[in-house]
Design a protein around this nucleic acid. Sequence first.
DNA 1: GTTATCTGTTACAAAAAGGATAGTACTTAC
DNA 2: GTAAGTACTATCCTTTTTGTAACAGATAAC
Lengths: 115, 115
Amino acid sequence: MKKHTVESCAKAKMAIRDTLDIVGGKWKLVLISVLRSGKKGFNELSREAGISPRILSKELQELEMNGLVSRKVCDTKPVTVQYELTPYSGTLSEVLSAMEKWGYLHRNKIVQGIE
Amino acid sequence: MKKHTVESCAKAKMAIRDTLDIVGGKWKLVLISVLRSGKKGFNELSREAGISPRILSKELQELEMNGLVSRKVCDTKPVTVQYELTPYSGTLSEVLSAMEKWGYLHRNKIVQGIE
DNA sequence: GTTATCTGTTACAAAAAGGATAGTACTTAC
DNA sequence: GTAAGTACTATCCTTTTTGTAACAGATAAC
């Protein structure tokens, strides 16, 4: 277990805010989670994540800007674009798996509370 | 490493959304992080987190509703209230530490990119 | 009684986020 | 040339979130 002093707490606060600045919001982590099953096209992502094109476009730009997702234009019949996780995005895997685990845990807690 | 099939991905997506529903947003995780250094009063929290009373009140209610924070009214001269993390909030420690770690990591990456 | 502290709430405003719908540009298929 | 598929963008609007400022109730100090 870690000690929680006033100073370490201020640092922790800042670090958490930094993280939220990059992957906070409704979609970023969901998109990354979806992309973990492999590279995907724009419409494909839109369908799988259930996100409108406008928002998707904005979110992908931000993710790309922060080096978490790469965008590759393919020279196909109708031009397609492949979005893919970057190696750097792998540094988020602990965050993702912790949140997934907690999501399961909490849902189970809620469900059991109802039954 | 975990496999990422289409089905496991849908589950993961849902779990992450569940988590975001509870601790998403600008303040929840920051408040929990601040409270890790011990129980605190309302104004104290407001100052330390840099959050206005209106928002703080709302956030604390939601955290309490979800069993992450407990509220105890103390019979002091001016009535004071102690907010404290519940044992259940401990289940979030992995999420918190993962996000803290990533915040540090990413900040270092950015800083080095500038220098 | 005025001021101060603590815990909030209320009213108002501003900003950010998100969503719906349609349209652009390009190409292929019919 | 019409439709369909890809990848967006533009416009408009609603909802959510956040912030500011002031105020209220209770108690104590001066």
